[in-house]
Design a protein around this nucleic acid. Structure first.
Length: 108
DNA sequence: CTTTTGACTGAGT
DNA sequence: AACTCAGCCAAAA
């Protein structure tokens, strides 16, 4: 569960870590889970800091259209695309994923 | 302490 | 869904 006593960023990392392999989540969705549906920016902001790139699968987080983030801390969109495809998520040449198929359905 | 910032989103045009 | 405007609010400077 989410420890609300921890920082907002911490919660973001926690939720992102819960995204199952082969699925993706949107910033707004994560923000909603955290109780701050309007703070979608901060989801990305938190990942931008990305203190734990090994533990936080930022590549599974996309915007509401299913497009990969404009910037990417791991080393570029190509890297992200590669990581997603390695997990069974098909990413097209425009770095877009099929949300209807791959969107994560959280249990919260 | 105040101000800036930011990987977004939704409504309006 | 193409583009713009504004809101959202925690962390960093």
């Amino acid at each position: 569960m989410i420890d609300e006593k921890q920082g907002f960023f911490k919660q973001v990392y926690f939720v992102v870590e819960q995204i199952p392999l082969g699925k993706v989540a949107t910033y707004g969705q994560i923000a909603f889970i955290l109780g701050r549906p309007k703070s979608s920016k901060f989801v990305g902001f938190a990942l931008n800091k990305n203190p734990n790139p090994k533990k936080t699968p930022c590549h599974r987080v996309v915007n509401r259209f299913g497009d990969l983030a404009n910037s990417f801390a791991f080393g570029g969109r190509h890297q992200q695309k590669k990581l997603l495809e390695a997990e069974g998520v098909k990413v097209d040449k425009n770095f877009n994923v099929n949300l209807n198929k791959y969107l994560w359905k959280p249990d919260f």
